[in-house]
Design a binder for these strands. Structure first.
Length: 421
RNA sequence: GUGGGUGUAGCUCAGUUGGCAGAGCGCCAGGUUGUGGUCCUGGAUGUCGUGGGUUCAAGUCCCAUCACUCACCCCA
């Protein structure tokens, strides 16, 4: 073993890789049904995009970014999250001048320089969705429902939805300073004291018991919302209730990124290590302006593919969500002439929509049959000198061991009828 | 960045008081020269993470180091 995957990363290998791919598909299926369009942006961006979009005060920007200088002297950063890049792309291509809301989704890899542990890696995968240009509680509710639907379609029952509102430019500042006043009176370590000054909301998220204990009397955002925010949030909650989306109000739910306003939510799951969030998102009405764009409200989420796979594993849902892999027909040639005939026949079968493979490598019959067995194929298609002379191949049903001779000219139609729906 | 745990065959792991490097599974071959699975027989595979130290002798004890892993901080 000379090389291994870089520290903090891992490979998706079969069959887990196929489960992960299927998870991505099932996460995006509800989005496509709701009119969201697929977008793809580069894996890296101008560092300033994240510094301004995600927020200088966040840990992501201050210590978790993969930043480097390219040969042209530009500062480049591997994307630590998706929203800032998607908003950048929407603005760059003027999609916000078209019909609103702009609804897009993405699926890809993200990078954060952190110490790895279960459910947290330096390279990770998310499926995300963003809806831009409209401030409508129904859009927030749709967004939240779509992710809930995605988790439900995977069969997960342990996903809990937490909901909160962080207020807006009108009411947040007052709350922020009220919270700071409270926090400054607590007994906290230096790093946390610094956080109180730059990003006090995140202190509410601290999981250390000695900090938690002091937060019991902390002022809550929900008590400081302006009338507009209160009404907006009530409407989101009411729409969710009507839609049958179960949620729990969590007035302490804040998120790690600076750009969130109003609706904030997180999908949490117990039992995938110390991490609990399998997805999260919210409204970010100020983001566009932070990165130099026009006022453009937005709401979105990102779901963690890796963590969702872990959740599926803890709920025993792996098999149910792993698509059948492998081929249906496995061709076993006996001799060079048979190999040539079967090579063509296998291509014909694939052309007709029947998955087929051939025993490569000139193994003996025994080895080739073993290959047929291990491939998981339903049928072995055996051809030797005697069969060529007779103009028929042996078709063996591997589960039952039943074997019949089928004329070569009828092989493709026979399998097509049997296997193609 | 900080702390705990673990490194032995492809995989999962045993290895006693320091005394010849092991098992199961997998892999390969044969039993069966045109037939897989089950069964039987045989076979191959090791820098015991790495480097140093103690010792007649180290997988085992000591030191260092690296990797993996879990957790803290933080996050999807």
């Amino acid at each position: 073993m000379t090389f291994q995957a870089p520290k903090g990363t891992f490979d998706w290998m079969p069959p887990r890789s196929e489960l992960a791919l299927s998870v991505r598909e099932q996460m995006s299926a509800p989005l496509r049904l709701a009119g969201y369009r697929y977008v793809e942006t580069p894996a890296f961006e101008d560092t300033a995009l994240f510094a301004r979009g995600v927020g200088e005060s966040t840990d992501i920007v201050s210590k978790e970014m993969y930043t480097f200088e390219d040969k042209g002297g530009r500062s480049i950063t591997l994307r630590p999250e998706g929203t800032a890049a998607v908003v950048r792309a929407v603005l760059q291509h003027g999609l916000h001048h078209g019909p609103l809301p702009v609804k897009v989704w993405y699926s890809g890899s993200f990078y954060r320089y952190e110490r790895a542990q279960k459910g947290r890696y330096r390279h990770f995968s998310q499926v995300g969705a963003e809806a831009l240009g409209v401030e409508d509680p129904a859009l927030d509710a749709e967004m939240i429902q779509l992710a809930a639907e995605a988790f439900a379609s995977l069969g997960l029952t342990g996903v809990e939805l937490l909901l909160n509102s962080l207020g807006c430019a009108a009411c947040r500042p007052a709350y922020r300073s009220a919270l700071q006043d409270f926090l400054r009176g607590l007994d906290l370590d230096d790093a946390t004291r610094a956080r109180v000054e730059i990003n006090p909301l995140r202190v509410l998220d601290d999981k250390r018991p000695e900090v938690r204990a002091q937060l019991a009397e902390a002022p809550l955002v929900s008590d400081h919302l302006c009338e507009a925010c209160k009404g907006y949030h009530e409407e989101v909650r009411s729409l969710l209730r009507t839609a049958g989306v179960a949620f729990t109000d969590d007035p302490r739910l804040v998120r790690g990124l600076d750009y969130y306003t109003r609706t904030t939510f997180e999908y949490v799951y117990e039992g995938i290590g110390a991490q609990t969030a399998v997805g999260g998102g919210g409204r970010y009405d100020g983001l566009s302006e932070m990165i130099g764009g026009p006022p453009l409200p937005g709401v979105g989420w990102a779901l963690g593919v890796d963590r969702t796979v872990l959740a599926l594993e803890t709920e025993g849902l792996v098999e149910a969500n792993t698509p059948r892999a492998g081929v249906e027909v496995y061709a076993v040639p006996l001799g060079d002439e048979a190999r040539r005939v079967l090579f063509d026949l296998v291509l014909e079968l694939r052309g007709a929509g029947v998955s087929a493979d051939l025993a490569f490598g000139g193994k003996g019959v025994k080895g080739a049959m073993k290959g047929a067995d291990r491939s998981g194929a339903a049928y072995a298609l055996i051809l030797g000198e005697r069969d060529i002379a007779a103009g028929a191949a042996q078709v063996k049903h591997l589960a039952s061991g039943e074997q019949t001779a089928v004329p070569l000219a009828e092989i493709v139609t026979m399998f097509k009828e049997k296997l193609v729906k």
